[in-house]
């Protein structure tokens, strides 16, 4: 009898542990995106006539609606809540860009673009643009165009909120750091931080229990992933600036250079007038430090 009960408790705990790995939306502390104030602008740019004839901007402004691809499962960047509307920094950026076209937040159609579908969605014209924790790299530039970057993500450190000893990668010497076996962050730690004792697990969520139990001192991978954990767990904190560079860009059709350059202009406006900082602080900024806006890259094809 008592043995059977212990078994049930074990099973239930295992189920909870598994569920905990992907606990999501419900307790996301990020506030809802502010739809008003960004929906329209009064600087005249929202007037379709202001855009060059035949441009993507003119077409979208004319239609008064836009389709934007984003992640639906990335806390703080693009996460769909119970109401079906995604929230996060990527969503805010997408909303601000749409606002510059004179498109209200409620006229934006959000489409889920997981990592493996982003290029295809752009090439097929399923979406007008993609804001989805989308790292700019040369391979992807063969297929799509990138405006931005609008944010530089990178490898960072997650540790217990109570641990004051670790404030950045230089404090990791001699520490036990959990990461995923065979991942790029693991490679980076092995190559550039040889003093670190790397503890590889199968997934990042499996690192959390050992971290809480003091079996490892920190977890290290992309700050965006770590921020998701920090947002869901009050006892965990992301520490220090990212120590690798993953520039996040806005994906558009490869040959639509005009649209890409226009988005770059919009981003520079957002950086300059503080709307970018405001968007950050109301979303990912709740758990990540507020960075300086990056410089946009107006690369030639």
């Amino acid at each position: 009898m008592s043995r059977r009960r212990t078994g049930a408790v074990l099973l239930a705990t295992a189920a909870l542990a598994v569920a905990g790995c992907q606990a999501d939306a419900e307790d996301d502390p990020a506030p809802a995106p502010e739809a008003d104030g960004t929906a329209t602008t009064d600087d005249g740019e929202s007037d379709p006539g202001a855009f060059p004839e035949g441009s993507t901007m003119a077409r979208l402004a004319e239609e008064g609606s836009i389709t934007i691809g984003t992640k639906f499962d990335q806390p703080l960047f693009g996460l769909v809540g119970p109401d079906g509307v995604p929230e996060g920094f990527d969503v805010e950026i997408g909303t601000l860009i749409a606002g510059e076209l004179g498109i209200a937040a409620e006229d934006i159609e959000w489409v889920e673009t997981p990592s493996q579908n982003r290029e295809t969605a752009i090439e097929n014209g399923d979406v007008d643009l993609v804001v989805a924790t989308y790292t700019i790299n040369d391979d992807r530039k063969q297929r799509v165009g990138f405006a931005g970057p609008y944010y530089e993500a990178g490898q960072s450190i997650l540790t217990l909120a109570s641990n004051e000893d670790i404030q950045g990668p230089d404090d990791l010497a001699g520490a036990r750091v959990c990461t995923v076996s065979g991942s790029t962050p693991e490679q980076n730690l092995l190559e550039n931080y040889p003093e670190v004792e790397v503890v590889p697990f199968g997934t990042y969520s499996e690192c959390l229990e050992p971290l809480r139990n003091g079996q490892v001192d920190a977890v290290s991978t992309d700050n965006v992933i770590l921020a998701g954990f920090a947002a869901e767990n009050d006892d965990l904190e992301v520490r220090g600036e990212p120590f690798t560079q993953e520039p996040y860009g806005i994906g558009v059709a490869k040959d639509d250079v005009e649209f890409r350059m226009w988005i770059n202009d919009v981003l520079e406006d957002l950086f300059a007038d503080g709307r970018w900082t405001q968007a950050w602080e109301s979303t990912a900024g709740t758990v990540l430090p507020t960075p300086e806006p990056p410089a946009v890259d107006r690369y030639e094809d």
């Binding site: 705990t13 295992a14 499996e206």
Partner: peptide, 8 residues
């Protein structure tokens, strides 16, 4: 069980 459940 050994690595992730037993500690609980």
């Amino acid at each position: 069980f050994m690595v992730l459940v037993a500690p609980q």
